[in-house]
Simulated scan of single mutants.
Amino acid sequence: MTILHNKISNKELKERLAAETEPRTTLSFYKYFNISAPQQFRDDLYKKFEELKVFGRIYIATEGINAQISLPTANLEAFKTILYQAAPELDGIRLNYAIADDRQSFWVLRMKVRDKIVADGIDDPTFDPSDVGHYLKAEEVNEMLGKEDTIFVDMRNHYEYEVGHFKDALEVPSATFREQLPMAVDMLKEDKDKNIVMYCTGGIRCEKASAFMKHKGFENVYHIEGGIIEYTRKAKEQNLPIEFIGKNFVFDERMGERITDDILSTCPQCGEACDRHTNCKNKACHRLFIQCSNCAERFEGCCSQSCAEELHLPDEKIKVLIRERAADPTFFTKRRG
């Protein structure tokens, strides 16, 4: 019987990846379309992708598929054939290739069936996610930037925006996409006559956001085709000025792709210019934050002095702290010193 999920420890999987010598390609893709039997769709793809040594994170729902993956470059064409044949809607789907790829993005294949491929909090049967805004290509993006009648809206989380964004883009200050959608509508309610350009990392969030804005009565709605990743790639290919500044945060082990040399954020522990994200080494915290190399050494990779002290507690006490904090939904929003 074929095992349709991983049973090997992360430690061993990382060691296997480190021992690989063949080049890998990191890419992402998504598509909103109806999948009537998502579990069967998932299982069929899992077996085929596993044979091709595909690693990464893939979410499948009745509304479509969302994937960030890595695979041996030699298997890329075989992968495309399998993907394009999986459903008519996936034939020729755009693949967003990583801008900076060090092979270390993923080390295991995780495919999950979810209620939605992007958690949006929308509970309105009249909402049509396929009624999206106008796509913008790289050259068109640059043409619209800086126009008085145009507002660029960043539909990513705060920790993504703080290390990189389009110049003068509006930040929607929220930790989740589901909170951002109604917030964006409220923030832009006096600007319905303007061009609203929405963007995100690879296109999946801003595409749904553009549909939501249209649903709420906005008419001149646009979104960047393929998000920041595709914009940057096309701008480089066409020798266009790159108007995105800083680093593009990505949801894998790299935690970011350098777009320009601009450093937009600072280390919260010392104030030094820094845009290096890391997770707190304290297992009872694991908070995502920015930290420079000096503070990483000073605080042992922790986000605060208290976490550095907890780092050396016995495992039993750490487990107790994890349970206590899991029951407190406000813990990770509190400022700790």
Rank of each mutant, 00 (worst) to 15 (best):
T2C: 06
A37T: 02
N220V: 07
R258P: 14
K137V: 03
I290V: 09
K31E: 03
P182G: 13
W107Q: 11
H277G: 04
D191K: 14
P38K: 00
D123L: 03
Q238N: 01
P88V: 08
R110M: 03
K236Q: 14
K334P: 10
N282S: 14
D123M: 02
R24M: 01
A235K: 14
I228P: 11
Q269R: 09
P125K: 08
D328H: 14
N279P: 11
S265V: 05
L76P: 01
C303E: 10
K11A: 11
Y46D: 06
V197M: 12
A326W: 12
D193E: 08
F249Q: 08
I245H: 11
E77Q: 12
P88W: 11
A175M: 05
K247Q: 09
N96P: 00
E89W: 08
G301N: 11
I65R: 00
V172G: 03
F33V: 01
K147G: 03
M144S: 04
T201L: 11
S36D: 07
G121T: 07
G56E: 08
D191Y: 15
M198S: 10
D252C: 00
K194T: 10
N248I: 11
I99G: 01
P38I: 02
N239Y: 10
A37R: 01
K137P: 01
M111F: 09
Y135C: 02
N75K: 13
S70H: 05
K194E: 12
A184I: 10
V108W: 11
T81C: 05
A119Q: 09
E272H: 09
R233S: 08
R336M: 14
N34I: 00
T232V: 15
N157P: 06
I69T: 04
V132D: 06
A100I: 07
A138T: 02
D115N: 12
S265Y: 15
K11V: 13
M1I: 04
K48F: 03
M1C: 04
F166P: 05
I3S: 04
K319L: 13
F299P: 01
K112Q: 13
A273C: 02
D168G: 03
L136T: 10
I322Q: 14
V250Y: 08
M111I: 12
S174H: 08
E190W: 04
T201K: 08
Q180I: 02
E190P: 03
K317H: 15
F332P: 02
A138L: 02
V163S: 03
E179I: 06
C285Y: 15
I318L: 13
C307S: 14
A308Q: 15
Q68K: 01
G256D: 09
F177E: 11
R156A: 04
V250K: 02
K147M: 08
A296I: 07
A308N: 12
D43M: 01
S306K: 15
C292F: 13
P129Y: 13
C200S: 15
V132C: 07
R110V: 04
A211E: 06
G227H: 06
E162F: 04
A18T: 05
R178A: 10
D262M: 13
L181H: 05
